Computed example of a mutant assay.
Amino acid sequence: MFCNKCGQEIKPGAKFCTKCGTPVPQVQQPAPEQPAKPKKAQPAPKQSVTPEQEPPKKNKKPVFVILVIILVILLFVCGGLVGYYITQIRGNDDTVVSDDNDKDKDTESLSRESGKKSKKDSETEEATEAVSKKGAHATVDGTEESEVKETNKEHTYQIVVADVTWTQAYQQAKEVPNGHLATFETQEEMDKVIQQINAEGHNDMIFWIGMTRRGDSTDYQWVDENGKSEGKMENSNSNWLQGEPSFYDTDNSKDEYYVDMFYSSSNSRWVWNDVPDDLLALIPSYSGKVGYIVEIEE
């Protein structure tokens, strides 16, 4: 520290300058800070403790009323059942007396009804037997069953000469009203067609008929106008040419899926043979001698 007047250095704690005697201003030292006293924690306000409220007492009066109502209902139901039982007993007594009086009348009536039923049953059996013999799908009262084809329905046939494949013949036969490629469900139907072929002078031709097999199957069946196979398997039918069906043409390496019919002079009869779809492609000399038979539902 130095004197403000003469610049003489002043020792610490001196009150006057040793050179010029000028009083030295005293600097008050700041009082040391006192550490802050920790505040006392204020006690939490006491909560007033109220006594727990007691749960309200249940009113037992509604339960008692409900029990009384149920008891009254039960008494009413029991009374009704007892009354009904007494009425039934009285009614049964009356019925017994009535049955004794009418016993003879009922016996006579039952005898008459039995006779009527026996007569009706006999008529029903006769009608059923007649329907079975005719082969028609009909009910006993004579009404036809819808959606069932009648086996005794009449058919007519149309002989068509055309150089077509089996597939083409099948489609063209469907274009004839009520027609489809011929299917012979009985030998009589085939014989009828043969008579018509001979009468029209086509006994030297080859005709497609509505028989085929599907995929890898070896079962030959008739095919209806919707392309659905129907009837039993015909592989063992006696109309096949000897050695047929063969299922495969080894000479031309062709699968055989379709059936035609022709007159075999060596067998002196009309026979069936399985061949590929396009017969003319294999044997062009058959041109002009191929055709098909349309069956028309009357």
Rank of each mutant, 00 (worst) to 15 (best):
Q34N: 09
I86Y: 07
L81K: 08
Q42T: 13
L71H: 01
P62C: 00
F64G: 09
T87I: 10
Q34T: 13
C20I: 14
I86D: 01
K40P: 07
D93M: 00
P25H: 13
F64W: 06
F76D: 03
G13T: 05
P55R: 12
E33I: 08
F64D: 12
V27Q: 14
K11E: 12
V68E: 04
V68K: 05
K60Y: 06
L75Y: 01
D93V: 04
Q26Y: 15
Q53G: 08
L74D: 05
V49H: 00
L74S: 09
Y85Q: 13
C78Y: 05
I70G: 05
Q26N: 12
A36L: 14
K46H: 03
Q47P: 09
I73V: 15
L74M: 04
Q34F: 02
K60H: 07
K37D: 05
R90V: 12
L74W: 00
P35H: 03
I10L: 04
K61W: 00
T50S: 15
P30Q: 14
D93Q: 08
P62S: 00
G80D: 09
K40W: 01
Q8E: 13
K19S: 06
K39G: 12
P30W: 05
K15H: 14
V49W: 04
A41H: 01
K15G: 08
Q28P: 06
G83K: 14
T18E: 12
P38N: 07
G21W: 02
I89N: 13
V63Y: 12
G91S: 13
G13N: 05
K60N: 05
G21R: 03
A36F: 10
V77D: 07
Q28N: 12
L81M: 12
I89L: 12
L71S: 09
V68W: 07
N92Y: 01
Y84G: 03
P38E: 11
P30S: 11
P35G: 04
L74N: 08
F76Q: 01
E54D: 10
G91H: 06
K37T: 14
V24L: 07
L81H: 06
F16H: 10
Q47E: 15
P51L: 13
P30L: 11
K61V: 00
P55W: 11
L67D: 02
V49T: 02
A31M: 15
C78P: 00
Q53F: 08
P35T: 11
I73E: 11
Q88M: 02
P55Y: 09
P25R: 13
P23F: 06
P43K: 10
V27F: 11
E52K: 12
P12I: 00
K58N: 03
V24F: 08
K15R: 15
K11R: 15
F76I: 13
I66T: 08
Y84T: 09
V65K: 10
K57W: 06
L81V: 14
E54K: 13
I73H: 04
E9L: 03
K39Y: 06
N92C: 00
Q8H: 15
P32H: 02
R90S: 13
Q47H: 08
G91R: 10
